[in-house]
C-alpha cells in the first residue's frame, strides 16, 4: 500500500507567538519554524506502517514556499522515502491545499492519505475533510489507532467523551490525533542521509489549481491577559462569590 502524507510547516510549538502590530497576522520573520506536531504524528504512523510491511512506499507532500523543503527533509529523515513540494508563494487556505493535494493524489495514486487533524498555526481542522470530499474517498478523522485488514482500515477515533471505532474502505483519508503515536527523533545519521532522498517540485499551475484565497482575515488579536486571582477569607465568602460573581452555582 502506497501512503501519501501531507505535512505543513508552522511556527515551532515552543515559540511564543507575537501578533503583528497592525493586527494583520502573526510575526513569522526570524521565527523558528518546524513541522506541525500533528503532521509529525502522521509521518511517524506512515513510517511505522512501512516498517511493519503494511506500507510499500511513504511519500510526503507539503504545499507552500520553497523553505517548506526543510520540513520535507525532516520527514525524510524520519523515514519517508521521497518528497513532493507544491511550491506556492501565495497564502494557501484549506480549500486551496485540499485541491492541490487532490492533484498530487491523482498523480501519485496512493491508497491512503495520512495527515494531521489540524495545524497548530490557525487550527482550521478542515483540509483532510475537504480532501476526502473532493476525492470522494472515505474519511476517518482524529485517529488514535489505525489497523489495516484486506481492503479496509479499522480506525479508533477520539471523540467527545470517548472513543469511536469505525471501519472505512480504502482508499481513504485519515487524520491523526495526538495519541496515535509518539513521533521518533530523526537520528543524526538519517538526517544526513535524507539529503540524498529525492524531492520533486511542482507548482499550482502544474496541478491545474487556482490557489487564490477565498477567505480574508479581518483582524488578529492576542487573547486577553489573564486576570489575577483573589483570596477569600472563609468558605461562606467563597460560596457567596461563586454564586453571585462567578455565577457557577
Amino acid at each position: 500500500m502506497k501512503v501519501l502524507v501531507a505535512i505543513k510547516r508552522v511556527i515551532d510549538a515552543y515559540v511564543k507567538v507575537r501578533v503583528k502590530s497592525d493586527g494583520s497576522g502573526v510575526e513569522t520573520q526570524n521565527v523558528k519554524m518546524s513541522m506541525n506536531p500533528f503532521c509529525e504524528i502522521a509521518v511517524e504512523e506512515a513510517v511505522r506502517m512501512k516498517e511493519a510491511g503494511i506500507a510499500s512506499e511513504v511519500v510526503v507532500v507539503s504545499c507552500g514556499q520553497q523553505n517548506s523543503q526543510e520540513t520535507i527533509r525532516t520527514a525524510l529523515a524520519m523515514g519517508a522515502d521521497r518528497g513532493i513540494l507544491v511550491q506556492s508563494d501565495a497564502e494557501l487556505q484549506p480549500l486551496a491545499i485540499a485541491k492541490l493535494l487532490k492533484g498530487v493524489v491523482e498523480k501519485e495514486q496512493p491508497e491512503l492519505v495520512l495527515m494531521g487533524k489540524q495545524a497548530v498555526d490557525n487550527d482550521f481542522n478542515q483540509t483532510g475533510q475537504m480532501l476526502s470530499a473532493l476525492l470522494d474517498w472515505s474519511q476517518a478523522t482524529f485517529a488514535s489507532k489505525i489497523e489495516k485488514s484486506d481492503g479496509k482500515l479499522t480506525v479508533t477515533r477520539e471523540i467527545d467523551g470517548g472513543l469511536e471505532t469505525i471501519e472505512v474502505a480504502l482508499p481513504a483519508v485519515v487524520t491523526a490525533d495526538l495519541r496515535l503515536n509518539e513521533p521518533r527523533y530523526a537520528s543524526l545519521p538519517n538526517i544526513m542521509k535524507a539529503k540524498k532522498k529525492p524531492i520533486d517540485t511542482m507548482s499550482a499551475e502544474d496541478l491545474g489549481v487556482d490557489p487564490s484565497p477565498r477567505l480574508s482575515v479581518v483582524k488578529v488579536s492576542e487573547p486577553p491577559a489573564r486576570q489575577g486571582g483573589a483570596k477569600v477569607g472563609s468558605v461562606a465568602e467563597l460560596v457567596e462569590k461563586l454564586k453571585n460573581e462567578a455565577k457557577v452555582i
Binding site: S34, E70, R73, T74, A77, Y185, A186, L188, I191, M192, A194, K195
Partner: peptide, 12 residues
C-alpha cells in the same frame, strides 16, 4: 555539512 542539514541536526 550544508547549512540546512547542520541546522536540522542541531535542532534535533
Amino acid at each position: 555539512l550544508d547549512e540546512d542539514t547542520l541546522e536540522q541536526l542541531l535542532d534535533t
